[in-house]
Design a protein around this nucleic acid. Structure first.
Length: 595
RNA sequence: GGCCCCGUGGUGUAGAUGGCCUAACACGCCACCCUGUCAAGGUGGAGAUCGGCGGUUCGAAUCCGCUCGGGGUCGCCA
């Protein structure tokens, strides 16, 4: 074939040309005599007309064409007869009068309609992903993703970043997420891990004098999947030497802003608002607040300090707080819904429950309101600006628990009552995260990672009161979705040693796990910091998709399987022998062995 | 591991309170008719025992239990 003409680009200027075109049969309209085939490629549709008197051979061949056949057609491009133009179609002024057609590939009837946006069961879509990819949604999404990534690359290049590929067979570390482990054939009994992030390598790049590193990095985490989480995902990974927070912020705002403009033709604006972690927790009960709407949380502990209500009194006696969320217009919600779904939201967030106080024109409703004094209710109304018609939600508990429950209710109310303005994008930075948190085992663990710098004001009390120490870590949040996080890194050995002491890591343990990094820092390490942003989530947001699976070509299901290939598969005895492994239990369930 | 939702021909759906469901509709598929349609039209046809197994019942797609699959979410994701 000479020069390929794409179907969606063919217009009136080509009228009279002899063309040879290829594509999929999108629609077929057989009038017995005249037969129309709509030919499709990724650029659009073109109508091909087969006339039995003008080209009997081609017409007969067209009768055999079915939907989704791949065909090559020859003919002359003509203007459509007056009155038969299709204004819905970009190429609707013209049509190809076919003189010949070749079936390049026949097609069985598709399990679902290709040219139709109607929803199809996602399991079926994934099983036939190659057909799903032909449909408008995935075509649009993957092309937008491509443009987004190209935008990132162009922008990074323009700012002097260089793209480095770091290894995907890396040492396994027990910290953080569960690793995907790869057995090592040449050292039986030893394993590789797939990287959860290129963190340590990019820091080594800084020591290596590369100055500004970036990578479109595939990362793996063997944890349960969600709408916004897959086993493997792609992040924009960035590290910069000789920088402070503001430099990293500016770089990320520009990178994402440039890519956003390129993929979605929307200017994001900059700089993005910054909110400390403390303020986010107080105002939204979340470290990834959805700031597209207000309705912030309030604290009413003082207003109820002298309360007789046992529920409140016992929480206060235990050192807890009473926090509040006002739901304007919420008093009309059915009692059954409040006591059902709304209570459930609070319980799922870890609270024992939520006190739901509808305020009507004739006063507060519910048994707890009746147990409260009139002055108490008046103070509550004043403090929270609750008016007739509103619903007041109160949670009395540990401050964090109360915040989490009301934060969850705030999101629930927003979806239920339509508080979220459509089309809005609220990017913001969350700063000043705590350095440590308590893990499930009661021990301290880094909130970000142990190479994060401590806030300069908090070094003095790092070891005496580690939980109060802030770090120089920061997140990007957009519309309540965590987009990514970063930090300024420690490069001074004595600071790093202090962190490891707080974490209770023995020196030989540190040496075994991170000796290579600490060694590098003894050879002239520039101060540096960076960021990692989830590309799947960014593209999902940009497209308004509800799940990252909609922007990933071949995703896994929630149970971590690929319905298309059947992976994961069993392993043959030979494969196991090669890598020196023996199965403790035979695998159950279906699934063929590979090879 | 917990909680919640869903599972009817190839696809999408309908099938309150169990019997009139020997399961309906739309699209798709097959055949025939039809020379200007474009979600073409017309006529006819094939195709599901209601995810699977077990139970309750005179009787179940409809009720119960278990199980499998899909999805949401909590835990988990330094």
């Amino acid at each position: 074939m000479s020069e390929r003409r794409y179907l969606g680009t063919i217009g009136a200027e080509a009228v009279g040309a002899e063309l040879e075109l290829v594509g999929w049969v999108h629609h077929r309209r057989d009038h017995g005599g005249l037969t129309f085939l709509d030919l499709r490629d990724h650029t659009g549709l073109l109508q091909v007309v087969f006339n039995p008197t003008a080209a009997p051979e081609a017409h007969r061949a067209a009768q055999r064409c079915r939907l989704e056949y791949v065909v090559r057609v020859q003919g002359r491009l003509g203007r459509r007869p007056a009155g038969s133009e299709n204004r819905q179609l970009a190429t609707g002024e013209v049509e190809l009068a076919a003189t010949g057609v070749t079936i390049l590939s026949a097609a069985e009837p598709a399990p679902f309609a290709i040219g139709d946006e109607r929803p199809v069961d996602e399991g079926v879509r994934l099983q036939y992903r190659y057909l799903d990819l032909r449909r408008p949604r995935m075509q649009r999404n993957l092309r937008a993703r491509h443009r987004f990534v190209q935008g990132l690359r162009r922008s990074a290049d323009a700012m002097g970043f260089i793209e480095i590929e770091t290894p995907t067979l890396v040492p396994s570390t027990p910290e953080g997420a569960r690793d995907f482990v790869v057995p090592s054939r040449l050292r039986p009994g030893f394993v590789w891990a797939l990287p959860q992030s290129p963190q340590l390598y990019k820091q080594l790049c800084m020591v290596g004098g590369l100055d500004r590193y970036f990578q479109i990095a595939r990362c793996w985490r063997d944890e349960d999947l969600r709408a916004d989480r897959q086993f493997e995902f792609t992040q924009l990974d960035v590290e910069m030497a000789f920088v402070e927070e503001t430099d990293v912020f500016a770089a990320l705002e520009r990178l994402i802003g440039d890519a956003w403009a390129e993929a979605f033709a929307i200017p994001l604006g900059a700089p993005w608002p910054r909110l400390t972690w403390q303020a986010a927790m107080e105002r939204y009960g979340s470290d990834k607040p959805d700031t597209r709407f207000g309705n912030e949380l309030m604290t009413v502990t003082e207003a109820l300090a002298g309360t007789e209500v046992r529920l409140f009194r016992s929480a206060l006696a235990a050192g807890g707080a009473i926090r509040a969320l006002r739901v304007p217009g919420g008093a009309q919600l059915p009692r059954a819904e409040l006591e059902g779904a709304w209570q459930q939201v609070a319980r799922d967030a870890g609270a024992a429950g939520v006190v739901l106080l509808p305020r009507l024109a004739d006063g507060w409703q519910g048994p707890i309101a009746r147990a409260m004094g009139a002055d108490e209710l008046a103070r509550l109304a004043e403090r929270t600006a609750t008016e007739a018609g509103d619903l007041l939600c109160l949670v009395a508990a540990d401050e964090r628990v109360a915040g989490a429950a009301l934060g969850a209710l705030r999101l629930h109310a927003a979806r239920r009552l339509g508080w979220i303005p459509p089309g809005r994008l609220d990017f913001l930075w969350i700063t000043d995260f705590p350095m440590f948190e308590r893990g499930a085992d009661g021990g301290l663990q880094p909130l970000h990672h142990p190479f994060t710098q401590v806030h300069p004001d908090d070094w003095p009390r790092l070891e005496s009161d580690p939980l109060s120490a802030r770090s120089r870590a920061y997140d990007i949040v957009c519309n309540g979705v965590e987009i990514g996080s970063g930090s300024l890194r420690i490069t001074r050995p004595e600071q790093q040693a202090a962190i490891f002491r707080v974490l209770g890591l023995a020196e030989d343990e540190v040496e075994a796990k991170f000796g290579f990094l600490l060694g590098a820092f003894r050879h002239g390490a520039p101060p540096h910091g960076g960021f990692a942003a989830g590309i799947d989530r960014l593209v999902m947001l940009g497209l308004g998709e509800p799940s990252i699976r909609e922007v990933i070509a071949f995703p896994k299901t929630q149970t971590g399987q690929d319905p298309l290939t059947g992976a994961p598969t069993r392993v043959t005895p030979g494969q196991l022998r090669d890598v020196g492994l023996r199965l403790a239990e035979p695998p159950t369930g279906p699934g063929p062995a590979t090879r």
